[in-house]
C-alpha cells in the first residue's frame, strides 16, 4: 500500500472528508494558549485542509504542535475526529522516518510526545527540575513502582 493510501485510510477513519470548515475546532483549540506563534496552518482546520488538498503533510512541521486533545473532536458538528486524524498522521510520519520532532522515551524508546509540547511543559515548570520529563507516562509509573514498592 502506498503512502497516499495510508493517509487516505487515516482520513476515512477520522471522517476528515466530512469537514465543513466551520472553524469551531480552532475556536476551542488549546494550542492558541500554548504557543505565541499559533497560526491557521497549525490549527486542526489547517491540518485538515492540507490533507484534503493533498499537500505533503507528513513532513510538515505544523503537524507536531498538537497535543492530541479531545477539544476539536468534541465540538465538531460533522463528527470529524481531529485527534484520530493527527494521531494517525503522526504514526505514519514516524513509520516513514520523519521523527526529528518527537521526544523519545528514555525507558522504552517509544516516541511519546512532540518536542513543541514538551517545550511548553518545561517552560511552564521552569523552576522545577525536568528529569522525569524524559520518560513516557507508562515508564514513569514503572519507575515509580520500582523505587517505592
Amino acid at each position: 500500500m502506498s503512502r497516499r493510501d495510508d493517509i487516505r485510510s487515516v482520513m476515512v477513519a477520522s471522517r476528515a472528508f466530512a469537514c465543513v470548515e466551520c472553524g469551531r475546532c480552532v475556536a476551542v483549540c488549546p494550542m492558541a494558549e500554548m504557543y505565541p506563534n499559533f497560526s491557521i496552518e497549525m490549527s486542526p482546520r489547517g491540518v485538515i485542509k492540507k490533507v484534503l488538498m493533498d499537500a505533503d503533510i507528513l513532513s510538515d512541521e505544523h503537524l507536531w504542535y498538537c497535543t492530541e486533545c479531545n477539544a476539536g473532536t468534541d465540538v465538531c458538528p460533522a463528527g470529524v475526529s481531529d485527534r484520530d486524524l493527527i494521531r494517525g498522521l503522526r504514526h505514519l510520519a514516524i513509520v516513514s522516518g520523519k521523527v526529528q520532532e518527537v521526544r523519545t522515551c528514555q525507558g522504552c524508546g517509544e516516541q511519546y510526545v512532540p518536542v513543541h509540547v514538551m517545550e511548553f511543559i518545561s517552560e511552564r515548570l521552569k523552576e522545577e527540575p525536568t528529569e522525569f520529563l524524559n520518560m513516557c507516562p507508562a515508564c514513569r509509573r514503572k519507575v515509580y513502582l520500582m523505587r517505592n514498592a
Partner: peptide, 23 residues
C-alpha cells in the same frame, strides 16, 4: 480539553488518560 499535559507534567503520571478515547 483532555490534552494530557497534566499526565506529562506529573512525576508519577498520576492523571490517567484512556488510551483510545483520550478521556
Amino acid at each position: 480539553v483532555e490534552c494530557g499535559i497534566c499526565t506529562l507534567a506529573c512525576p508519577e503520571a498520576a492523571p490517567l488518560q484512556e488510551p483510545f478515547t483520550g478521556r
